[in-house]
């Protein structure tokens, strides 16, 4: 074999994936050819040297992040599942009982209508059935919270936007979610996400921690769009505690003139 053909086998030699015959051929060649011998030796040395890099272990946080993500994904899957399945059960059932003759179809429809009206009338007079639904509703809310929080933590801005919009659908968001939303408003790298967070927090404006968070985050905003949205919101909810924050914002020399104007108008309305 020529030197060229022998050297083509070196990569196989390095990972030890080589049959006996080829190995013998290589060794035979190396015995006579010092250039190839030196070449393989030096390749092997660096190959071995690469072995000094130890295998490292990631932090425990990676595992817990993975399981949070997997749980959230499972919940979404389960939420989506009942829809089509219930539909198939219903349509299969209906098909079996639905009469073929139009006259019978009409009678059955009337019967169902009467039953529905009677049922509705009877139910209205008894206790409302909310008691059974409460735990179910609570469970849904907590699932939504988990999902919203994991979305807000996502690398992609569009996923975080989804997280904000999901949070805004909550009736009574818990304090962890509110904290995350305020954190997003203060620190998210994307102004669109921060803007969406302003809108979402507007819905929970009556909660003291939200009001406090809004005035605090005013100083941290850099995008004029977000600043204006935040000023408008603070003025509309008449948040007196934001007066100081507005004052120091106006004094900032680098402030966009339009934002400054808006802040001055807002301050007048608050005072």
């Amino acid at each position: 074999m020529t030197c060229h053909r022998i050297r083509e086998k070196f990569p196989d030699f390095l990972i030890g994936d080589i049959d006996e015959t080829t190995k013998m051929q290589i060794q035979g060649h190396l015995a006579d050819c010092s250039t190839c011998r030196e070449e393989l030796e030096s390749l092997s040395t660096i190959w071995t040297r690469l072995g000094v890099l130890p295998e490292e272990r990631p932090s425990e946080a990676l595992r817990s992040r993975f399981y949070t993500m997997l749980d959230a994904y499972k919940q979404v899957l389960e939420q989506e599942k009942p829809g089509p399945r219930l539909q198939t059960i219903l349509s299969n059932g209906l098909e079996r009982f639905w009469p073929r003759q139009p006259a019978f179809q009409f009678s059955l429809a009337m019967l169902l209508l009467v039953m529905g009206l009677t049922g509705g009338f009877l139910l209205r007079s008894t206790q409302p059935a909310t008691a059974e639904l409460t735990p179910l509703r609570q469970e849904m809310e907590s699932m939504r919270t988990t999902l919203a929080m994991s979305l807000l933590d996502n690398q992609s801005a569009s996923e975080r936007l989804r997280g904000v919009s999901l949070s805004s659908q909550m009736k009574q968001p818990d304090s962890r979610l509110l904290e995350t939303l305020i954190y997003t408003l203060e620190n998210d790298s994307n102004p669109n996400v921060r803007l969406a967070a302003v809108d979402a927090l507007y819905l929970f404006r009556d909660l003291p921690e939200v009001r406090q968070g809004l005035s605090r985050s005013l100083a941290k905003q850099t995008s004029p769009l977000v600043q204006v949205a935040l000023i408008d919101l603070i003025v509309s909810i008449k948040e007196q505690r934001a007066i100081d924050a507005l004052r120091s914002l106006i004094q900032d020399e680098k402030l966009d003139p339009l934002v400054k104007e808006r802040a001055e108008q807002g301050l007048e309305r608050l005072l």
Binding site: D12, L14, L43, W47, L50
Partner: peptide, 12 residues
């Protein structure tokens, strides 16, 4: 294989 060979040489 050619890439690996080249890579080891460059690394050396």
């Amino acid at each position: 294989k050619a890439h690996v060979h080249r890579a080891v040489k460059d690394l050396r």
